[in-house]
């Protein structure tokens, strides 16, 4: 409908030109609904045949899309669009209305406040009820943390075991090898998980007091990141670094798992190791500090 004047438009209406575009839209809407109908039938057949995810998705698309497109086109091209205009009503109530409201409110308040002792007692009673019922509800959700965050299952003499519970010998790991270990009896534990590394370099810088913690070049660190607690399972063997997959904290294995990059604030705690007479790896003691991310009570 280009380059038209109102007069021309009237003329078009008379000779039925406008009508033509209208019935074209009707055809589009009809085809759209028909497509939806066919897709719905198809969906029924697919479903009856046992279902197939991609066919279901595609047929749902056509069944729903045909309906949606048809209804929108109908509502847009075959129904008067206006524009219509509507006056907004004032949201605010008349002053008199508010005045009466406030008076009514005050009437009630004065009637209640007359018995001020009862008001106070009621307040205290409701508060007491709230505290008494709410407190056990929260309390019964879980135990108090107490020493929970300070201890793991590692003890003096705990044997290192794999996730399947089998004990680890000092000869099991090749130089350059890595293994996730647990204290015996707690295989698979989330808190005690420890990463056992046998680095292929020998320039280990031992922290003071940890001279005996790494027999035969073995090193064991808590696998729980000190940042957000993810398992620090990514061992880069050449660079001797442990990487946390969640937020990319990087720990230097050779210098006591100090954080060298990323958001982790503290080194991974180190597990002191020893090798018994049969060649099994044991823990000399448990971790000497809480493992994992920080918390308020931790100094």
């Amino acid at each position: 409908m280009s380059s038209s004047t109102p007069e021309l438009e009237q003329e078009k209406v008379k000779v039925g030109l406008v009508k033509t575009s209208e019935s074209r839209f009707e055809k589009v809407v009809a085809v759209s609904f028909a497509l939806s109908l066919l897709a719905s039938i198809g969906l029924g057949i697919v479903y009856w045949q046992g279902g197939q995810t991609q066919a279901e998705g595609a047929l749902l698309f056509f069944a729903l899309g045909g309906l949606g497109f048809g209804i929108v086109a109908w509502g847009k091209y075959l129904v008067p669009q206006g524009p219509y205009v509507q006056e907004r009503e004032e949201l605010k109530s008349p002053e008199s209305e508010r005045a009466v409201l406030i008076e009514s409110l005050e009437r009630g308040v004065t009637q209640i406040e007359r018995r001020s002792f009862l008001v106070k007692l009621l307040g205290v009673s409701i508060a007491a009820f709230g505290v008494i019922t709410l407190f056990p509800f929260i309390r019964s959700l879980g135990p108090q943390p107490k020493k929970m965050l300070y201890v793991t299952n590692w003890k003096k003499g705990s044997a290192l075991v794999r996730s399947d519970g089998s004990k680890v010998r000092a000869s099991d790991l090749e130089v350059g090898g890595v293994l996730t270990v647990f204290p015996e009896g707690h295989a698979g534990g989330a808190i005690s998980q420890t990463i056992l590394i046998r680095p292929s370099f020998e320039d280990i810088v031992t922290k003071p007091g940890r001279e005996t913690w790494g027999p035969q070049g073995y090193l064991a660190y808590s696998k729980v990141c000190t940042h957000a607690g993810c398992p620090v399972g990514l061992y880069q063997e050449l660079t001797q670094q442990l990487l946390c997959p969640c937020h990319q904290s990087l720990f230097d294995v050779m210098t006591g798992a100090n954080p060298v990059f990323g958001p982790a604030p503290r080194p991974l705690p180190q597990l002191p190791l020893e090798i018994d007479s049969q060649g099994f790896l044991l823990a000399q003691a448990g971790y000497d500090e809480p493992i994992g991310p920080g918390f308020w009570e931790r100094a």
Binding site: G177, V178, L179, E237
Partner: peptide, 13 residues
């Protein structure tokens, strides 16, 4: 063989 930065996994592991 643990090429590059990949750790080696021997028969004991």
């Amino acid at each position: 063989t643990g090429p590059g930065n990949m750790p080696r996994f021997g028969t004991g592991n």
